[in-house]
Deep mutational scan, measured.
Amino acid sequence: MAAAAAAGAGPEMVRGQVFDVGPRYTNLSYIGEGAYGMVCSAYDNVNKVRVAIKKISPFEHQTYCQRTLREIKILLRFRHENIIGINDIIRAPTIEQMKDVYIVQDLMETDLYKLLKTQHLSNDHICYFLYQILRGLKYIHSANVLHRDLKPSNLLLNTTCDLKICDFGLARVADPDHDHTGFLTEYVATRWYRAPEIMLNSKGYTKSIDIWSVGCILAEMLSNRPIFPGKHYLDQLNHILGILGSPSQEDLNCIINLKARNYLLSLPHKNKVPWNRLFPNADSKALDLLDKMLTFNPHKRIEVEQALAHPYLEQYYDPSDEPIAEAPFKFDMELDDLPKEKLKELIFEETARFQPGYRS
């Protein structure tokens, strides 16, 4: 834990890192770190609560700039109880001085990944967590956004079992017609939660990839272990087919990539493993919904509104309290091709509203 900075004593240090967030945020305490930044909790002297502050230093890398800009653009436009918001952003007053960006968010005690390492969940908890994931996802999908990296560590939890989806750095506007060349190379989302079509096709992607990830998360809540822990690309596919069985001819016809289709045709026939054999203690309604989410063919996979209306979630289902976005989200430009200098300018502009004396 960093010592509390005395008023006016300059930035606090946390594990050798400068955290320049005073005077409003003090009493910093280390939480963890990701690929390009550290997260601390801090005391907000204005709202009198502890908050989470993520320090991001992305400006050396085009990919990190892209992810940072995506996350900020999306989260500043989203407003939903099951999606983490941005409360404040701290950065230098000029673009030349801006080396880091500090993002202030609600402090959540833990995440689903940490929880599943230590606790076996009751059916009631599984049901409530799944409902909140789908409630947040309904809003995301209504904005025409794909999260693309749903996994237990991106689901934040607090002691009252509130759940918030975080990390929109890989999110995209849904565009089933656009052929994202190089899709697989830039697709760094965790393999275990990846839909089979991501490994088999490169053309376009749809909201059904997020539903697949939610199915993987439900299976993990039922058993405290990942359902498809593939060691590499082909191993991942083999794990999936080992449980779902061989795809039907109709399902194979959806695979545009001939090499991928021929690979699947070359494999020995596998039978589907019954879900109640894998999860003998699970609620039968939970397994019915799991089956509809972990469907090989993305066109037959359940959609988020149908999933919310499934009998497993009937005690929570309330369409009048499951809000959607006001308007579909649009990125003005494809960020993939922009140089990091341009992305830095866009991050600077996007964060201006939090600067003292800002006038829109």
Rank of each mutant, 00 (worst) to 15 (best):
Cys161Leu: 04
Tyr263Glu: 07
Tyr128Trp: 07
Pro298Trp: 03
Phe168Ser: 00
Ile227Gln: 01
Asp288Tyr: 14
Asn154Ile: 15
Pro280Ile: 05
Leu28Gly: 03
Thr181Leu: 12
Val101Ser: 07
His239Ala: 06
Tyr193Met: 04
Val101Leu: 15
Thr26Phe: 13
Ser29Cys: 13
His61Met: 01
Glu350Asn: 07
Asn257Ile: 15
Val18Trp: 01
Glu81Pro: 07
Leu115Glu: 01
Ala174Cys: 04
Ala327Thr: 08
Gly182His: 13
Asn123Ser: 07
Leu278Ala: 08
Asp175Asn: 12
Glu33Asp: 13
Ser248Asn: 07
His180Arg: 00
Tyr205His: 00
Ala4His: 09
His180Leu: 15
Phe329Glu: 00
Phe331Leu: 15
Glu197Leu: 07
Arg301Ser: 14
Tyr131Arg: 02
Val21Glu: 15
Val214Cys: 10
Ser41Ala: 12
Met333Leu: 15
Arg194Gln: 13
Tyr25Ser: 02
Ala7Asn: 08
Ile256Ser: 06
Ile84Asp: 00
Ile103Thr: 00
Ser246Leu: 06
Asp162Glu: 15
Ile140Val: 09
Lys344Phe: 07
Leu107Met: 11
Ser153Trp: 06
Asn276Gly: 11
Leu69His: 04
Gly8Ile: 07
Pro176Tyr: 08
Thr118Arg: 12
Ala92His: 10
Ile86Phe: 14
Asp124Val: 13
Gly16Arg: 14
Asn154Thr: 13
Ile211Thr: 01
Asp100Glu: 14
Gln66Ile: 04
Ala195Ile: 00
Glu305Asn: 06
Val145Tyr: 03
Leu264Asp: 03
Arg277Phe: 08
Leu121Gly: 02
Val173Glu: 15
Leu287Trp: 07
Val173Ile: 05
Leu69Pro: 01
Leu234Gly: 06
His269Asn: 14
Tyr187Met: 01
Arg353Ala: 04
Ile86Arg: 00
Ile72Ser: 12
Leu184Tyr: 05
Lys330Arg: 05
Pro339His: 11
Ala7Pro: 13
Pro152Asp: 03
Leu343His: 11
Leu28Phe: 03
Leu75Lys: 07
Ile256Gly: 09
Lys164Val: 04
Gln119Val: 03
Phe296Gln: 04
Pro93His: 04
Lys342Gly: 08
Glu60Lys: 15
Asp44Pro: 04
Asp111Ile: 00
His310Arg: 00
Ile74Glu: 10
Tyr43Met: 06
Ala195Gly: 06
Phe331Gly: 00
Ile347His: 15
Gly242Val: 08
Ser223Glu: 11
Arg277Gly: 12
Leu264Trp: 00
Thr159His: 12
Ile211Gln: 05
Ala286Thr: 10
Val101Gln: 07
Ser284Lys: 04
Lys259Met: 14
Phe59Gln: 13
Lys340Gln: 02
Asp210Tyr: 14
Gly10His: 08
Asp321Cys: 04
Cys166Asp: 04
Ile53Ala: 10
Arg15Phe: 08
Asp177Val: 14
Lys259His: 10
Ala260Phe: 01
Ala325Met: 00
His141Gln: 12
Glu81Cys: 10
Thr68Met: 15
Cys65Gly: 01
Ala189His: 08
Val14Pro: 14
Tyr193His: 12
Asn253Glu: 09
Glu341Ile: 02
Lys259Ser: 05
Met333Ala: 06
Ala2Tyr: 07
Met13Trp: 02
Gly37Asp: 15
Asn82Ser: 10
Ile90Asn: 14
Pro152Ile: 02
Val304Asp: 14
Arg91Asp: 00
Asp106Lys: 09
Phe59Leu: 15
Asn271His: 12
Pro196Met: 02
Asp175Gly: 08
Ala260Pro: 04
Gln105Met: 14
Leu222Gly: 10
Ile72Asp: 02
Gly357Val: 15
Pro196Glu: 06
Leu264Arg: 02
His61Asp: 06
Tyr233Ala: 01
Ile240Tyr: 05
Ala7Asp: 12
Glu81Leu: 06
His310Ile: 05
Pro226His: 14
Arg172Ala: 06
Cys161Glu: 06
Tyr30Gly: 01
Tyr187Lys: 03
Gly215Met: 06
Ile83Gly: 02
Trp192Ala: 04
Ala260Trp: 02
Leu343Gly: 07
Ile89Arg: 03
Pro298Glu: 10
Pro93Gly: 09
Tyr205Leu: 03
Pro323Gly: 07
Ile140Thr: 00
Met199Val: 00
Pro229Val: 09
Gln315Ile: 06
Leu265Tyr: 03
Glu250Asn: 10
Ile302Lys: 05
Gly10Thr: 06
Gln66Met: 12
Ala143Gly: 09
Gln66Glu: 13
His232Ser: 05
Leu265Met: 11
Asp175Phe: 08
Asn27Phe: 04
Val173Ser: 07
Lys344Ser: 03
Leu234Ser: 10
Asp20Met: 02
Ile209Glu: 12
Leu150Pro: 12
Ile256Val: 07
Gly16Glu: 12
Lys344Asp: 09
Pro196Val: 11
Asn201Trp: 10
Phe59Ile: 15
Ser248Arg: 04
Phe228Val: 00
Arg67Gln: 11
Val49His: 09
Lys342Tyr: 10
Val304Phe: 13
Cys127Phe: 14
Pro319Ala: 08
Ile31Val: 03
Leu150Tyr: 03
Glu250Asp: 13
Asp251Glu: 13
Pro247Thr: 14
Lys231Asp: 06
Ile243Phe: 14
Lys99Glu: 03
Glu334Val: 14
Ile72Arg: 02
Ile209Thr: 00
Asn253Ser: 07
Tyr358Gln: 11
Thr159Ile: 11
Phe19Lys: 03
Pro93Glu: 09
Glu303Tyr: 08
Lys285Leu: 10
Leu267Met: 15
Ala189Cys: 07
Gly204His: 07
Thr181Ile: 11
Lys259Leu: 06
His120Cys: 12
Ile126His: 08
His239Asn: 15
Tyr36Ser: 15
Pro311Glu: 09
Glu186Phe: 01
Ala282Gln: 04
Met199Ser: 02
Val304Ile: 13
Met293Thr: 07
Pro93Ala: 12
Arg359Phe: 07
Pro58Asn: 15
Lys231Val: 02
Glu60Leu: 14
Lys340Ser: 08
Cys216Gln: 05
Asp177Ser: 03
Phe183Val: 14
Gln62Gly: 12
Lys114Ser: 10
Asp177Lys: 07
Glu220Gln: 08
Leu335Thr: 05
Ala6Ser: 12
Tyr113Arg: 14
Asn253Val: 07
Val173Asn: 02
Asp88Ile: 01
Ala42Ile: 01
Pro93Phe: 01
Asp332Pro: 05
Asp336Lys: 08
Ser223Pro: 11
Ser284Asp: 03
Thr190Leu: 07
His141Lys: 10
Ala6Leu: 13
Met38Asn: 14
Ala325Asn: 03
Arg194Leu: 10
Leu222Val: 04
Lys272Thr: 08
Gln355Met: 08
Lys259Gly: 08
Phe129Trp: 03
Asn154Pro: 07
Asp283Lys: 00
Gln66Asp: 10
Thr118Asp: 02
Asp149Pro: 03
Leu290Glu: 06
Leu267Asn: 01
Trp275Ile: 09
Pro311Gly: 01
Met98Ser: 12
His80Met: 04
Ser266Glu: 03
Lys207Trp: 07
Ile72Asn: 14
Glu350Phe: 01
Leu265Cys: 10
Phe59Lys: 15
Ile324Asp: 09
Ile103Gly: 02
Thr94Tyr: 06
Leu252Trp: 04
Tyr113Ile: 07
Thr351Asp: 02
Leu157Gly: 03
Glu81Met: 04
His269Met: 04
Leu184Arg: 04
Ala189Trp: 03
Leu155Tyr: 08
Glu349Pro: 03
Leu290Ser: 07
Pro247Trp: 05
Thr159Asp: 02
Ser248Phe: 08
His232Glu: 04
Thr118Val: 03
Phe354Glu: 12
Val273Thr: 00
Tyr358Asn: 09
Cys166Met: 01
Ala174Asp: 04
Asp283Asn: 14
Leu156Lys: 03
Leu156Val: 04
Asp106Trp: 02
Asn27Tyr: 15
Glu186Thr: 09
Ile74Leu: 10
His310Tyr: 08
Asp337Tyr: 14
Ala7Gly: 09
Glu81Arg: 04
Phe354Cys: 09
Pro311Ser: 11
Leu237Gln: 14
Lys270Ala: 03
Glu326Met: 07
Asp162Trp: 00
Asp318Gly: 00
Arg277Leu: 10
Asn154His: 09
Tyr25Thr: 00
Pro323Val: 08
Asn123Gln: 10
Asp283Leu: 03
Cys40Ser: 14
Glu81Val: 12
Leu287Asn: 11
Lys292Cys: 06
Leu107Arg: 03
Gln236Val: 09
Ile90Ala: 09
Asp88Ala: 08
Leu335Tyr: 08
Tyr317Gly: 07
Asp332Arg: 06
Ser213Thr: 04
Asp20Gln: 01
Glu322Cys: 00
Ala35Trp: 01
His269Ser: 05
Lys231Gln: 04
Arg77Glu: 06
Arg77Leu: 15
Arg359Ile: 05
Val104Asp: 13
Gln62Cys: 11
His239Ser: 09
Thr181Gln: 06
Met333Trp: 07
Ile302His: 05
Val188Cys: 09
Val51Gln: 13
